[in-house]
Simulated assay, not measured.
Amino acid sequence: MITTELLTKTYGRRTVVDDLTLTAPAGAVTAFLGPNGAGKSTTMRMVCALSRPTSGTALVDGRPYTELVNPGRVVGQLLDAAALHRGRTGAEILELALLTVDRPARHAVELLERVGLTDAADRRVRAYSLGMRQRLGLAVALAGDPRALILDEPFNGLDPEGIRWFRGVLRDFADDGGTVLLSSHLLAEVQTVADRYVVIGAGRLLAQGTAAEVVGAGSVRVDATDRSALLAALTAAGLDPVTGTDGVDVRASADEVGRAAQAAGVPLTLLAPASSALEDAFLSLTAA
C-alpha cells in the first residue's frame, strides 16, 4: 500500500502539493490524475524520497521510503524514462539494476524478454526510441521483484500495441496482489485498467475512490437496429436516454439498461461503458 497524509511541498511562496492525503491499496491499479502542474510528479518524487516534503508523510508498506532496507525490493519506480544512461546497453542497465537490489545479474535475460527487448539487449540506449526506453524503464522497476510500482506517464511514446501490452502487465501485477500508482494524461487508456482514481488540482485532492465514486452514476452507451424501439423501452423503464451519432447514452448501469431492453424484446447491437464519462468527470473536477 502507498499512502500520503497531509503531504505538502512548497517552493518559496508557491505551494505545489497542498495537504494531500491519498491511498493506493494493494491489489489495485490506482490512476493518479490531474492537469499539468497539478503536483502529480512532485508527489511521486516525495513518495520515493527524491524530494523532501515541507510537511506531512508519505509511506510505502507503512514506512517512509528512506527506512526501507532494500527499497527496490519493495517498490519499483519509473519516473523518467529519459534518465536511463544513454551510453550503456539495455542489458548492462538491467544487470546493474539487479546487482543494486541484490539479485543475480543473470535475471536480466528474462526481464528483457518480459518487456519485449530481447533483440535490443546489446544496443545502447541512445539508439532506443522513447517507447523502448519506457519498456526498459519498466524492466528496471521490476528488477527487484517489488510489491508496488510507481509510474509517471508510462504510456508516453508507446504505440497502440505497446500501450495494450503495458496495460496487461499492470493488470497482471495488480491481480497478483501488487500495488500500482500511475499518472497519465491518456484518460481513455487509464479507464481500461484502473480500479481506483485519485484526482488532484493545484496540489489539492479533488476526489478519490472507485470509478462509481469519482465519476458518479455509471454511464453506458447502447444501440440497437431499431433505435426508436430502444428509446421507447428506456423511457418506459424510467431512464433518460440521450441520442448521439454513434449510439444512445444512458446514465445508468449496464444491468439496468440490458434488463429494460430485454423486457421490451429489443435486441442490442451495443452495450458498453460511455468512454466520455471519466473525461467529463475529470474536466468538471478540475475546471476551477
Score class of each variant (00 low, 15 high):
V17W: 03
G87N: 13
P267W: 11
D18T: 01
A91K: 15
L138K: 05
L94D: 06
H107T: 14
R124L: 02
S41L: 05
L130F: 13
V16H: 02
A233M: 00
N36G: 12
A287L: 09
Y128A: 07
V190D: 03
L112D: 12
L205T: 02
L205I: 05
D159Y: 11
R227C: 01
L270C: 00
V75E: 15
S183Q: 07
L142W: 11
P64D: 08
L230T: 10
A272D: 15
A263V: 00
F282L: 01
T21H: 08
L186E: 06
F166V: 08
N70W: 02
T30M: 06
V242E: 13
V101R: 03
E256Y: 04
Q262Y: 06
L22G: 11
V215A: 09
S51F: 00
V69R: 14
T43V: 14
V198I: 11
V180Y: 14
L7I: 09
M132N: 15
V75R: 03
L84W: 10
R103V: 06
E67K: 01
R164W: 05
D223L: 05
A263C: 00
E95T: 14
R147I: 01
L278K: 07
D119T: 12
V69W: 07
L181Q: 05
L78C: 14
E161G: 15
A194Q: 11
L271T: 03
D61L: 14
D223S: 12
D80H: 08
L50M: 14
F32M: 09
